[in-house]
Amino acid sequence: MNRINNLFHTKNERVLSIYFTAGYPKLEDTLGIMEAIEEAGADIIEIGIPYSDPIADGPTIQESNLIALENGMSMKMLFGQLKDMRSTIHIPVVLMGYLNPIIQFGVEEFCAKCKEVGVDGLILPDLPMQQFLDEYKEIFESHGLRNIFLISPQTSEKRIREIDLYSNGFIYMVSSHSITGAKSGITEEQISYFERVKAMDLKNPRLIGFGISDQETFQKASQYSHGAIIGSAFIKILGQTPENQKEAIVAYLKKVKN
């Protein structure tokens, strides 16, 4: 069973997924950050593939992308860093990025590398569903990769049900129509959206992302879903604590979970 499916089969609530950008703050930090995330008790690791034009992301993640690229991070470099990750990393690992660098790398080669190093799923915000179904679904599935679609408050019920039909991992619920970035609290408007989707009784589990930053927002989001995703707030921690990185990661995530 794919590690993502196994996770939600065994743990059906308060799943914590952590996003960070590969090669940030330093080029060789990737595996050490992953190990600290798992040690701190997170359930999923999302690794951002640095890209020069991350359209869905706010200033914090944009800056981490720029720094990672300046550090020399590339797709080839990332797969080299991940080649032995399964000797220490046991939780699901998802790569998140944009379609263009994957096409440039070669979709078949990219998926083969993902399978080789032990990646479990992909989040590609700019991959249209029809293109996925027509061109990539068979390739992804043949390499054991789960494709995770995003929905937002503007996504129609018809579209959400279509996404649920063609998903086999989890659904990424974007909490608002804005770009990524830690916000202050969860609004009544967002709660109404969370409740609306929860009432649809979808077959796939749902994780809420964008604006989740601390124990309060994580717990609140988890009341309406199977858990939540933290990105920008975690990257800020990485940028602020380069010298005692592991200790800072463990302290922050334990505080979020507990």
Rank of each mutant, 00 (worst) to 15 (best):
M1A: 14
I4W: 04
N5S: 12
N5M: 05
H9S: 15
N12Y: 07
I18G: 03
A22M: 02
A22K: 05
A22Y: 04
P25F: 11
L27N: 08
T30V: 12
G32N: 13
G32L: 05
M34H: 08
M34G: 12
E35L: 08
A36P: 12
A40K: 01
A42S: 13
I45E: 03
P54C: 09
P54Y: 02
D57T: 13
G58L: 08
P59R: 09
S64L: 08
M75L: 14
K76I: 08
K76S: 12
K76M: 03
L78C: 00
G80H: 14
G80I: 03
R86S: 04
T88K: 15
I89P: 06
H90T: 15
P92A: 09
P92D: 01
V93S: 04
V94I: 13
V94F: 05
L99V: 10
L99K: 02
E109T: 11
K113N: 14
K115H: 14
K115V: 03
E116S: 12
V117W: 02
V117D: 10
G118H: 04
L124N: 00
D126Y: 11
D126H: 08
P128H: 14
M129G: 04
E135G: 01
Y136V: 07
F140C: 12
F140R: 02
E141R: 09
E141A: 11
L145P: 10
R146E: 13
N147A: 11
F149G: 07
S152Y: 07
P153E: 07
Q154W: 12
T155C: 10
I160Q: 10
I160D: 06
I163C: 03
D164C: 11
L165I: 11
N168W: 11
H177Q: 15
I179Y: 13
I179L: 14
T180A: 02
T180M: 06
K183D: 03
S184R: 13
I186G: 06
E188W: 02
E188N: 12
Y193M: 02
E195N: 13
R196H: 14
M200S: 10
D201G: 13
P205Y: 00
L207C: 09
I208G: 02
G209V: 03
F210G: 01
G211P: 06
I212K: 06
I212N: 10
S213I: 01
Q219C: 10
G227L: 06
I229G: 00
I229A: 00
I230K: 02
I235C: 11
I237Q: 01
Q240E: 15
K246N: 11
I249T: 08
A251F: 02
A251E: 06
K255F: 00
N258F: 00
